[in-house]
């Protein structure tokens, strides 16, 4: 097990992981006092390598590798149970979002490859058609995830019950959808390269 090392020359804030999360989410991860309530209520924690509170702990300690290589950031389905019950009001789902997108930016191999493939296929279809094309999602996923028969047994009953549309429906304004994808990615990159990190948005604003 890797040793967490702190040199005497470490600067406050360490390697900027805390600041990065703060900039991307407005969340102060130091507010977490490790009570473990998030992990206790998380439907996925038993499947995760780092429990949700440990993800926050690793952020507190600036453990980038631990966080970005974890399965936890990919298994979180943002069910919001943790945030709803957190006594310190740490928006953990939002922190998870930020860690995931940062891991992608840093080209770190996702610990849950199939989850990543699913989202890639999903968004690929949305970018192409403007709406989700469910048949395309299953087909595309099976191809990319190299699981040709995944969900196959569901295919026929779904088809016979008219649950599957064989032909994708499209948004008329295709150009705008494509532009949204392009400009969102640009904005994302702009933030990560730090050009406008200071102007990063705060946490979701309650009305």
């Amino acid at each position: 097990m890797s040793v967490l090392k702190f040199a005497s020359t470490d600067q406050p804030g360490r390697n900027g992981l805390l600041a990065l999360v703060k900039a991307k989410t407005g969340q102060d991860v130091l507010a977490c006092y490790q009570c473990g309530k998030c992990s206790a209520g998380c439907p996925l924690s038993s499947a995760m390598d780092l429990a949700p509170h440990q993800v926050l702990r690793a952020v507190q300690l600036g453990q980038r590798d631990l966080v970005f290589q974890s399965s936890a950031i990919w298994l979180c389905v943002t069910c919001q149970t943790c945030y709803t019950r957190c006594p310190q009001e740490v928006d953990l789902p939002r922190v998870m979002d930020a860690l995931r997108s940062q891991a992608l930016q840093e080209k770190i191999r996702p610990a849950e490859r199939t989850v990543k493939v699913f989202h890639d296929v999903f968004l690929g279809l949305v970018e192409r058609f403007g709406r989700l094309y469910e048949v395309g999602l299953i087909g595309g996923y099976n191809l990319l995830a190299r699981q040709p028969l995944a969900s196959a047994d569901l295919g026929l009953p779904m088809l016979t019950r008219g649950k599957l549309e064989l032909i994708p429906r499209r948004v008329k304004d295709q150009e705008q959808i494509k532009a949204i994808f392009k400009r969102a990615a640009e904005l994302e990159l702009e933030e990560i390269t730090g050009q406008s990190v200071a102007a990063a948005p705060p946490a979701s604003v309650p009305s």
């Binding site: 040793v3 780092l50 440990q54 702990r57 453990q63």
Partner: peptide
């Protein structure tokens, strides 16, 4: 000339080493 501290972060379940003045 420094002091090495060997501990454990029991929250993460990982050993910790801090170099202290």
């Amino acid at each position: 000339g420094k002091l090495m501290i060997k501990g454990e972060d029991t929250l993460l379940g990982r050993p910790v080493e801090v170099e202290a003045d």
